[in-house]
């Protein structure tokens, strides 16, 4: 049922590096290597403040990196941490994205990019196992696009990177609109595995659009977000239908989600 051998005690580690992405979003690199499956998450503690789920943004085996936006109590405290500060980690938890080869389409919106970045890392390491690999990424404004400095490396690794923003800013020559508009640039086949992470409303339209284009709902994988506390299938907060997002997800196939009225993606 729940994760075997639950322990409430986090591993304590330190912040090695802090990268400011936007006015309210940063990445922290921690002194801890994780062997995780992309799409999994960790429970991150700020001592005395609280614990929250964050996707693993780093590549499997690398030093753990998390990327987060300051939105509430714990994220505000995390945001305030600097190099050398201590931080607690439990996990990795949950089921990640399946990466079995063939064409892969990655679709991310806004703060949904971190786990997709991790998946890209895995793909790039074994690039020849995969066919066409394409990332569709949308953000509110160009300055909010995460990991901008890495896109070139991804492209060099033979990943098609298509970007779009809701509102253009000075110097933006790319497309303006919502992420589903990028479907007209699709280079993968409809038998591709699709990995999606972003706001529910975006995932809903991505799912709908892909179905119309003949993609298999069983091969569209979406990462769900729910209020979480324990991360290990005990506290009940993340329950949707018969599942727990922390334990049975956060990644679910679209076929499963379509049968859960509460999933918000139908």
């Amino acid at each position: 049922m729940a994760v075997e051998g639950v322990s409430w005690v986090p591993r304590l580690t330190r912040v090695l590096e802090r990268v400011q992405h936007t006015a309210d979003t940063v990445s922290l690199k921690l002194d801890l290597s994780l062997n995780h499956q992309p799409g999994q998450f960790v429970q991150v503690s700020v001592p005395g403040v609280g614990e929250i789920p964050l996707s693993v943004a780093s590549f499997p085996g690398d030093r753990l990196m998390i990327t987060f936006r300051r939105v509430g109590r714990v994220t505000a405290a995390l945001y305030g941490l600097g190099v050398g500060d201590s931080i607690g980690v439990r996990g990795p938890f949950g089921r990640g994205f399946p990466l079995e080869g063939g064409d892969v389409l990655l679709v991310a919106g806004g703060m949904g990019l971190p786990p997709i970045r991790s998946a890209l890392g895995s793909i790039l390491r074994e690039r020849d196992r995969f066919g066409t690999v394409q990332l569709l990424y949308g953000a509110r404004r160009p300055s909010l696009l995460l990991y901008r400095e890495e896109y070139d490396a991804w492209r060099r690794g033979d990943v098609v990177v298509s970007l779009i923003v809701d509102e253009a800013e000075d110097g933006w020559r790319g497309r303006v609109g919502v992420v589903t508009e990028l479907f007209d640039e699709l280079e993968v086949g409809s038998d591709a595995t699709v990995l999606v992470c972003g706001p529910e409303i975006m995932m809903k339209f991505v799912g709908r659009g892909l179905l119309k284009m003949g993609f298999d709902p069983k091969r569209i994988y979406m990462s769900m977000e729910r209020h979480m506390k324990c991360g290990v299938g005990l506290c009940g907060h993340c329950n949707i239908g018969p599942y727990y997002v922390c334990r049975d997800g956060p990644v679910f196939d679209f076929e499963t989600l379509r049968n859960i009225p509460e999933s918000g993606v139908i």
Partner: peptide, 18 residues
């Protein structure tokens, strides 16, 4: 019913409570 909430307390020491 098993659902619980978790919170941190900071009373000189770091205490996690459910």
């Amino acid at each position: 019913c098993f659902c619980f909430d978790i919170r941190d307390e900071d009373e000189g020491a770091w205490v996690r409570v459910r």
